[in-house]
């Protein structure tokens, strides 16, 4: 099966002397109907990955190496005019803040109908009917009446449903969802996740789900890519990565999540902080914070390799969990 989205060895730089790699050798793919979660701390390159796929890298960021294929076709070298046709119709996006993603001076219906007609030529009545159907699909009750409402008349969760309806207007095959639930409340979060999962299953839409919330990944994603300092630390099926993390960074991240009923006195934490892009260490980017780091880690950058179903960029990925237990020694 060809992947719907295939990113190979993507490198995005911030020009300068020397240029700084915001994304470095990022390789990942999304299949139809699959949700790929992308996690990492702020500054790890999650959102830049999404922007690169959409061809929306903001200057001065630029792609200097690698390729991005959508349905087998390279899209990173498409002229802007053709990329514009693709955005919205084939690849759609859902942003974190639904209030800024919607235009406050137009009704939800006007925005939906305009977007629908932008992507497929149809009359007002047909577009209106389609708008109603879309709102119903994303779980907005009484869609006929809600079409005439302005975004501020919706609650946060309902607005995010409208944004998802807008994203679906062009019948996309891939949705880039950048922190779609971060601005929402817990019980509403669960509703939006269920909606995204449902869309992937029923419509076969591929979803690149960018989030810093491991709980959201656990519930929604089929596979997950863990980003650290612009590099993929680990990528694989979600159960494998979260329950048996092989990269010491993933282990630290998973260990740091507070759990209900854990009864810990002290939460495990990863010592130190993610390095700045202009101060990346030699070798593995995680080595200054890693309990398993040795001379090789400090000199040589680990190439991702396949361990079972998981691809890990670590020389010590086979180390037993007990060796990594020292990572859970907190230095608060």
């Amino acid at each position: 099966m060809t992947a719907l989205l295939d990113i190979r060895a993507l490198r995005v730089e911030l020009p300068g002397s020397p240029p700084l790699a915001v994304l470095d050798d990022v390789t990942l793919s999304v299949n139809p109907g699959e949700i790929l979660g992308v996690v990492g701390e702020s500054g790890a390159g999650k959102s830049v990955t999404g922007a690169a796929v959409l061809g929306l890298l903001t200057s001065p960021l630029r792609q200097v190496a690698g390729e991005i294929r959508f349905d087998g076709t390279r899209i990173d070298i498409l002229p802007e005019a053709r990329m514009r046709r693709l955005r919205g119709s084939e690849i759609a996006m859902v942003f974190q803040d639904p209030l800024t993603a919607l235009n406050p001076v137009f009704t939800v219906g006007q925005q939906l109908i305009q977007t629908i007609r932008e992507h497929s030529p149809m009359g007002r009545t047909a577009a209106h009917a389609r708008a109603v159907a879309l709102l119903r699909e994303v779980g907005i009750s009484d869609p006929e009446a809600r079409l005439d409402a302005y975004p501020h008349e919706f609650s946060g969760g309902m607005r995010q449903r409208v944004v998802i309806a807008l994203a679906l207007a062009g019948e996309p095959r891939l949705i880039i969802a950048d922190e779609p639930t971060t601005a929402l409340d817990v019980s509403i979060q669960a509703q939006i996740i269920a909606l995204l999962v449902g869309l992937a299953r029923s419509r076969g839409v591929g979803v690149l789900l960018i989030t810093h919330d491991m709980g959201v990944i656990a519930e929604a994603a089929d596979r997950v890519a863990v980003l650290y300092a612009g590099r993929v630390a680990e990528i694989g099926p979600v159960a494998e990565v979260l329950l048996h993390p092989r990269h010491p960074y993933t282990r630290g991240l998973v260990g740091a999540i507070p759990r209900i009923g854990a009864g810990l006195e002290v939460l495990p934490q990863i010592p130190g902080a993610m390095p700045r892009l202009d101060a990346l260490p030699e070798g593995c980017a995680f080595n200054p914070r890693c309990p398993l780091a040795d001379a090789r880690c400090r000199a040589e950058r680990p190439v991702p390799r396949l361990l079972g179903a998981v691809q890990v960029a670590c020389f010590h990925a086979e180390a037993r969990q007990t060796d990594a237990a020292q990572i859970e020694r907190p230095d608060a």
Binding site: A194, G215, A218, E219, V238
Partner: peptide
Amino acid sequence: VPSLETLGRASAP
């Protein structure tokens, strides 16, 4: 609450 324990099954919202 989304958590690692709810892996793979979205909780009934």
